[in-house]
Design a protein around this nucleic acid. Structure first.
Length: 256
DNA sequence: ATGACCTGTCCTACAGGA
C-alpha cells in the first residue's frame, strides 16, 4: 500500500505532470494540495480515466485539497471546526482501505509576525484539536500534507536563512512538535532520523540544481498505522520535469 | 539588501507563494 502527498501548485496547469507521475509511481492513495481551482473545474474525469477516484475541496485561485484513491473513497469531513469565517479550502478527510486519511494544506504564515502568521497559528490550534479527536479513533489514521513547517535545522539546506521565516519560526516548530507529542509520528523522520531529506525546492536561484531544499510535506501516523510502516521516499526527479510544481511527490509504503 | 520564478486572474500587473 503506497500513500503519497503532492502539493501540485495548480492542478489544471500541471495535470500532465500529475498524470505522468501517477502512471509511473502507481500510488494507491494520494493527498493533493494547492489545487488552485474551483470545484467545478477539478479534473475528475481525467483522473478517473487514469484509474483514480477523488474527493476534493477546491477554491478559486488559491488553496484547495483533494484525496485520490484507486478504491472509491468516502468523504468524512471538510474544513476544521473553530472558525466559521475561515473560507480557505485547506482540509479534507476521507475513509478508504480501512483508514482515515486527513489531507491538509497549512497556511504559509509569511510575513511573520503579522496577521498571516496569526492565522497560521490559529489554524494550527484548530488542527491540534481535531488531531486529538482523531487519536481517540480505534482505526489507522494518517494526517498528511503540506504543513508549511521546517521542523528542525536538518530539514533545511541553510537554517540561518530561515530565522525570520514563518516556516521556521519557533512558534511554528513548537506547534508542530506539540502535535507530535499528542501521539503522532513523523514517518519520514522515524525511518530516517539523521538524513537530510527535502520535499520542496524554490523556483528561484536554481534551488533544485543546488539541492537547496526544505522538508515541508509530512506524514503523521497514529500508533495503529506505525507498525505497518515499511519505507518512505521523495520522488525528487519529478521536480526536474518540465512544468513541475515546486514541491516533489512524497510517499510512504505500508504493509498490506 | 535585492531579486531571481511560478501560478491564476475579467485591467500584460497584481497577489500569494515559501
Amino acid at each position: 500500500m503506497k500513500i503519497a502527498t503532492y502539493n501540485v501548485n495548480g492542478i489544471n496547469g500541471r495535470l500532465a505532470v500529475l498524470l505522468r507521475w501517477l502512471k509511473e509511481a502507481k500510488p494507491d492513495v494520494v493527498c493533493l494540495q494547492e489545487l488552485k481551482c474551483p470545484d467545478q473545474l477539478f479534473p475528475e474525469a481525467a483522473l478517473l480515466k487514469a484509474g483514480y477516484h477523488s474527493i476534493w475541496h477546491g477554491q478559486k485561485s488559491w488553496n484547495g485539497v483533494a484525496v485520490l484513491s484507486k478504491e472509491e473513497i468516502k468523504e468524512t469531513r471538510r474544513n476544521l471546526d473553530g472558525d466559521p469565517d475561515d473560507l480557505h479550502s485547506r482540509y479534507i478527510e476521507g475513509f478508504v482501505y480501512g483508514m482515515v486519511i486527513g489531507c491538509l494544506y497549512l497556511p504559509n504564515g509569511n510575513p511573520a509576525p503579522g496577521p498571516k502568521f496569526d492565522y497560521k497559528l490559529s489554524w494550527f490550534k484548530r488542527l491540534h484539536k481535531h488531531a486529538k479527536k482523531l487519536l481517540s479513533f480505534d482505526l489507522p489514521v494518517l494526517l498528511i500534507g503540506d504543513y508549511n513547517v521546517i521542523p528542525t535545522e536538518l530539514d533545511t539546506y541553510k537554517s540561518e536563512k530561515y530565522i525570520t521565516n514563518a516556516l521556521f519560526f519557533p512558534e511554528s516548530r513548537l506547534a508542530y512538535t506539540k502535535l507530535l507529542k499528542l501521539g503522532w509520528t513523523d514517518a519520514i523522520r522515524y525511518l530516517h532520523p539523521n538524513e537530510r531529506i527535502y520535499t520542496f525546492y524554490d523556483y528561484l536561484r536554481n534551488a533544485y540544481g543546488r539541492d537547496a531544499g526544505l522538508r515541508l510535506d509530512h506524514f503523521l501516523l497514529n500508533d495503529i498505522v506505525l507498525p505497518r510502516l515499511i519505507s518512505a521516499q521523495v520522488d525528487k526527479e519529478v521536480r526536474g520535469w518540465e512544468k513541475s510544481s515546486d514541491h516533489c511527490p512524497v510517499w510512504i509504503e505500508l504493509k498490506q
